[in-house]
Design a protein around this nucleic acid. Structure first.
Length: 538
RNA sequence: GGCCCUAUCGUCUAAGGGUUAGGACACGGCCCUCUCAAGGCCGCGAUACGGGUUCGAAUCCCGUUGGGGCUACCA
């Protein structure tokens, strides 16, 4: 009882004084959830919703729950749940309760602490174990719970059986549209007598269960991000709560589960704002305490419509496979709709946790713009240690056309050092400086035109003579040798430098020439210059 | 159509009645330099519009317009 009171009071204070900004340190255990429906992949918008839930939970020493909303059997996608779990692990969003891949799916490697042992084996998904005391965390495994709760509502006359056919519903809707009226169920089945209902039930006539919305009320929802929002109950449809296949709709399952799982804050996308009054009515019907709502602004396409496929990549795994670091994606997505009020742009997950607050979440939608994400990837990549980058490079080399070639760690580390300021992605090393892994296949046309003159071959031969006399040369010795050659030829160093670069790499950009020569080694350098002299014709 | 949300540089955003409207990405220029980058410096660039309230409005109120979401036995 006391817990209830404290919670209630705290909530209203939070609502009323937004300017107190996160000063509330005494609070009941905060519990939030991310409740995706497994439609195949994790959407970046979903990632942000999950992230904000995660940050809010961690910031407030709360609990982060993962729940799978798979009540639409027509949208079942093979492997979607497994893929979702995998992606959350990759993103580093460790949840405290919910389904996990059996055997922990390398949970240890990713720093997840969630213990799989002791979990309950999922009945509907192979290899999935559910951890936590409020399970099952998969809605298709909670059917009995919904059945029990819908009966409570029916008894209270807050919900009722509806036997209307699709045809009647369609006709109704058409008629209403023709009259320019709001399309809404006409409560036809609410007037059925008890005996009629029983007859229908007995006759196995398909039915749904609908919420009985009373008219002429104002339904008020308080939202942390949007403040007070009011709805006229005359405009709220008698929402289907249980479908004819016996499965609950989102609206019903979500309310029942949030209550049973003791969720204190519902943080979800703005697309749910219009259905929140239905949820509020459900809480009232059950006489349950409502959670605090926070409706996040939408992520948008460049044309400002709701972020969708066909206007670019929306799956987290797309970005992962393109080589984005989880740190960068998380940092980027965190800033879409939130900022700490300082001028910091670069955040680690720890910093996000420390600084996050729901009160600083924006109200307007944010365009998902890749330019900044690229930059963030560059910044986060440069924070990685040499050995971390080495590891990634080796993995990517193993999947590249160089997979059959051997390179020593020492060699690769030198390449990494040289490429660091020029790469936003690890794969840039392979794509932009392939000359570290193979002979130049061709010579950049424009470079040849600009840097390769008639006299160049003979000048380079002079340089080869100088290089040939060197023994295990250092970068400085390459430089001295080149200067010497240039001097004896009576030309500027630049003439040789550009020609050598072209000969050795095939391109006219890249790391400092002496770094490049040093990394490739004397024999290789001489060989490449000789090859170039042979191949490049002016 | 109805309901709801929303509106500051191209994009992400700061500014909670008094600021030359700040930062970041992108873009342009300069410096550095053997190239390409990186880095440093500089620049370009915004309060949608109209009414109020106020000594004073990006900020509060109303309206208009624009944008978006929702309007399913999908979530």
């Amino acid at each position: 009882m006391r817990g209830f009171f404290v919670f209630h009071t705290l909530k209203s204070i939070t609502m009323t004084f937004r300017s107190w900004k996160g000063r509330m340190s005494i609070s009941p255990t905060i519990r939030v959830r991310f409740a995706p429906s497994p439609t195949g992949y994790l959407h970046v918008g979903g990632l942000r919703t999950a992230l904000y839930n995660y940050l809010f939970a961690r910031k407030n020493n709360g609990t982060f729950v993962l729940r799978i909303e798979d009540t639409d059997r027509t949208r079942y996608v093979e492997g979607a749940v497994e893929n979702l779990l995998k992606t959350l692990v990759w993103a580093g969003l460790e949840y405290d309760e919910g389904p996990v891949q059996d055997a922990g799916y390398k949970m240890q490697d990713s720093g997840f602490r969630l213990q799989v042992s002791g979990g309950r084996v999922s009945s509907n998904y192979q290899g999935v174990v559910e951890v936590g005391e409020y399970g099952p965390y998969i809605q298709s495994e909670r059917l009995e719970i919904y059945k029990e709760h819908i009966h409570q509502l029916i008894e209270k006359k807050k919900a009722y059986y509806c036997f209307c056919t699709q045809e009647r519903l369609e006709q109704l809707r058409e008629a209403q549209q023709k009259e320019k009226l709001q399309t809404k169920y006409d409560k036809h089945c609410l007037n059925l007598s008890q005996s009629e209902i029983e007859e229908n039930l007995e006759a196995k006539i398909p039915y749904v269960v609908r919420l009985n919305v009373e008219g002429n009320q104002t339904v008020v929802t308080d939202d942390v991000i949007r403040g007070r929002v009011e709805f006229d109950s005359n405009l709220i449809d008698d929402q289907v709560l249980v479908k004819s296949d016996g499965y609950p709709t989102y609206h019903f399952a979500n309310v029942v589960d949030d209550h049973l799982m003791k969720i204190t804050h519902v943080i979800r996308g703005e697309e749910w704002l219009p259905s929140t009054p239905k949820h509020a009515l459900l809480y009232d019907a059950f006489e349950w305490e409502k959670p605090v709502f926070a409706h996040l602004p939408l992520l948008l396409n460049p044309d400002k419509s709701k972020l969708s496929k066909r206007q670019g990549d929306v799956a987290v795994e797309d970005y992962r496979s393109k080589g984005f670091l989880n740190e960068a994606l998380v940092n980027f997505v965190a800033l879409l709709g939130w900022n700490p009020g300082t001028e910091q742009e670069l955040f680690s997950m720890e910093e996000l946790v420390q600084q996050f607050s729901l009160e600083r979440v924006h109200q307007a939608g944010a365009v998902f713009n890749l330019e900044k994400l690229n930059w963030l990837n560059f910044e986060h990549l440069r924070k990685k240690s040499d050995s971390e980058v080495l590891q990634m490079l080796k993995e990517q080399l193993a999947e590249s056309r160089f997979k059959n070639k051997q390179f020593s760690d020492e060699y690769l580390l030198q390449v990494i050092e040289a490429m660091r300021p020029r790469m936003s992605f690890v794969k840039d090393i392979i794509e932009q400086s392939s000359y570290f892994f193979e002979l130049p296949a061709s010579y950049e046309e424009e470079g040849v035109k600009k840097r390769w003159k008639e006299e160049t071959p003979s000048q380079l031969n002079r340089l080869i003579e100088e290089f040939s006399s060197l023994v295990n040369p250092t970068k400085e010795q390459y430089e001295q040798a080149l200067h010497k050659a240039a001097e004896s030829l009576g030309i500027g160093n630049g003439k040789l430098i550009h020609a050598v670069r072209l000969a050795v790499s095939g391109v006219s950009g890249g790391p400092g020439l002496y770094d490049m020569l040093f990394i490739l080694g004397r024999e290789e350098v001489i060989r490449r210059i000789e090859t170039a002299i042979e191949k490049i014709k002016v």
